[in-house]
Design a protein around this nucleic acid. Sequence first.
DNA 1: CGAGGCCTTGACCGCGGTCAATGCCCGTGG
DNA 2: CCACGGGCATTGACCGCGGTCAAGGCCTCG
Lengths: 198, 198
Amino acid sequence: MKLTDFEKIKALYKLGKNLTLSDIQILIKSAKTKSFLPGEFLIKEGEIKKEIFLIKKGLVRTYKVNDKGDEITTLIRYENQVIASPDIIFFNKPSEFYFEAFEPTEVIYMDYDVLQKLIDSNPKLEANRKFFLHNILKDLLKRVDSFVLLSPEERYLEFIKTHPDIINRIPNKHIANLLGITPVSLSRIRKRIVTKNK
Amino acid sequence: MKLTDFEKIKALYKLGKNLTLSDIQILIKSAKTKSFLPGEFLIKEGEIKKEIFLIKKGLVRTYKVNDKGDEITTLIRYENQVIASPDIIFFNKPSEFYFEAFEPTEVIYMDYDVLQKLIDSNPKLEANRKFFLHNILKDLLKRVDSFVLLSPEERYLEFIKTHPDIINRIPNKHIANLLGITPVSLSRIRKRIVTKNK
DNA sequence: CGAGGCCTTGACCGCGGTCAATGCCCGTGG
DNA sequence: CCACGGGCATTGACCGCGGTCAAGGCCTCG
């Protein structure tokens, strides 16, 4: 599948604010598109592809594997969201996360260093340098808060409020894992909620 | 209390890697020292002092106040550790955290923008730009992991392993709060641990 | 039709929250 | 110098929730 330049431009617009047309023209040369089938990986653990992805279509699950061999889902992202490995981008070391396409997924992606250089050559775009950092930082802060301040039940309610459509696109066991509970508990939480609302 | 330039130099060395003597000379002009009494605040909620602190002596508790008015302790830092408000440094908005000196505390501090400018003028120091980001990011990632992967009891064991001396310097209720549990539970966890080791 | 993956449900357990009582330490004022 | 009060840690009683294990049902796919 091939995206038109116009679609690319629209997509790149979401990558950062204040991009001028000439900025986008530079970006567009290095921005590529790619498709993944369910079960394929955008990035695997141990890889150092310094790329940032914008999901045009589909759904990506991010997880890591802990000492015991369990998968820990840390993030679920879908259309019009940015995804990248913090290990690679920030620490310049191999990713500890897997990024797995869960549906047929189409992404626009580009090299992070290219974006950095563009910003270096255009100080007016300095704000964009922080764009991805902030993006990930906010997610992290939010995730910490949700674990410290909320009960599992409240976390679930928060999740379906901010991602109402996602519960139909991914098995509950991954959502449970993301929320830090077992699928069994999630099932009971769901049951509690429906009986409460009567 | 006044720190000598030599002490400042030693301290600044910890702020970043690859600093040359001339870099440090520039830094030293903008680095100031300050003392706080127990109960005084390095930064209060709502302030925008764009400063980074290096704790020379003493102990600082970082907390925020949630909707219900409870204090949530998020960080405890002491000698030779860096402390700064992520809200101010990264998002350029008022701090949502209080930074409270818990003991008589002496810090070296400087304006974050000054450090940024120094780095801008010396590309070789680019690595330092990320130094603070990484510092805070790592803490955040570690905190997420500890909440997702560990039980309260395991979190406490981890805490006393990495901060063995701190339990004598701050009331248990703040440690409990930092670990996301109540002081009552912490007390029982401590009891369980000692009986286990017999 | 059988196998595997997933969700649900029941039974049981252990831990953390809550409330309340008690004891300890320490600083302050009579 | 002692008495009182406040802050904190501990402990007991009780409860509810989440984990674990196991069984059963449903769906899909080969």
